[in-house]
Simulated assay, not measured.
Amino acid sequence: MPNPVTFVNIIDVEPEQQQAVIDILKEGSEKVISHRPGFISVTIIASADQRRVINIARWHSADDVRATQADPAAAEYAQRTAAIAQAHPGLYATVAEYTARA
């Protein structure tokens, strides 16, 4: 099996819309994304200044990401986010990872 891939979406948003973007991402993750083939995990991060939300999703393969993006149910959440914020999605490969040592 190929190494997992990471989908990162950095979303620029007006501070008053940050919670709405978070709510859309959480709903989409719970109802659609987490049930898609190849899904591993998702992390949603909100900036302290309320101007960004970062969506980090791990997948088994890039094909799984593309299939999810083509799914109309998933695309609906992307469209809802795009209506109130500016998204900058990208697909990444992990090249190094460090964890705390005991």
Rank of each mutant, 00 (worst) to 15 (best):
G28I: 09
R51H: 13
A83Q: 05
P2I: 13
A82S: 12
R80K: 15
Q50Y: 07
Y98F: 15
Q18L: 00
P89Y: 07
A78D: 03
T99Y: 11
I22D: 08
A82H: 10
Y77F: 11
R80F: 00
R36K: 15
P72V: 06
E97V: 12
I22E: 06
S61W: 02
Q50D: 13
E76M: 15
P89E: 01
S41Q: 03
T99E: 14
V65G: 00
M1K: 12
A70R: 15
A57G: 09
S47G: 10
T6W: 08
I11C: 06
D63V: 13
A85M: 03
P37Q: 06
S41P: 10
A62W: 04
Y77T: 05
G90L: 07
S34K: 12
T99P: 02
Q17R: 13
P72Y: 05
G38Q: 10
V13I: 12
L91N: 01
W59F: 14
V13H: 01
I33W: 00
A82V: 11
G90M: 11
Y98N: 05
T6K: 15
N3I: 06
L91V: 04
A82P: 04
S61Q: 08
N9M: 07
A67E: 13
V32H: 02
I40S: 08
F39L: 00
V53L: 00
S41W: 00
I84T: 08
L91G: 00
Q50M: 12
I84C: 04
S29P: 01
D64Y: 04
D49M: 10
H35A: 14
H60W: 11
N9Q: 08
S41I: 10
A67T: 08
L25W: 05
V8A: 12
D71W: 01
A57F: 03
A82D: 12
L25R: 00
V42T: 09
K31W: 07
K31L: 05
P89I: 10
S47K: 00
D63W: 05
E76K: 15
E16T: 06
V65C: 02
R101F: 08
H88L: 09
Q19S: 07
A93M: 04
E27Y: 04
M1R: 12
I54Q: 01
T68E: 07
R58H: 11
A75Y: 09
D64M: 03
F39D: 07
I24M: 02
E76Q: 13
G90E: 05
F7A: 15
S34Y: 01
D12L: 03
R101E: 09
L25S: 02
G90D: 00
A100Q: 10
I22C: 07
T81K: 10
E30Q: 13
D23C: 09
T81S: 07
Y98W: 14
V8C: 03
A87S: 14
A83G: 02
T68H: 06
A93R: 14
A78S: 11
A87K: 06
A100P: 05
T43H: 11
H60L: 13
D49C: 05
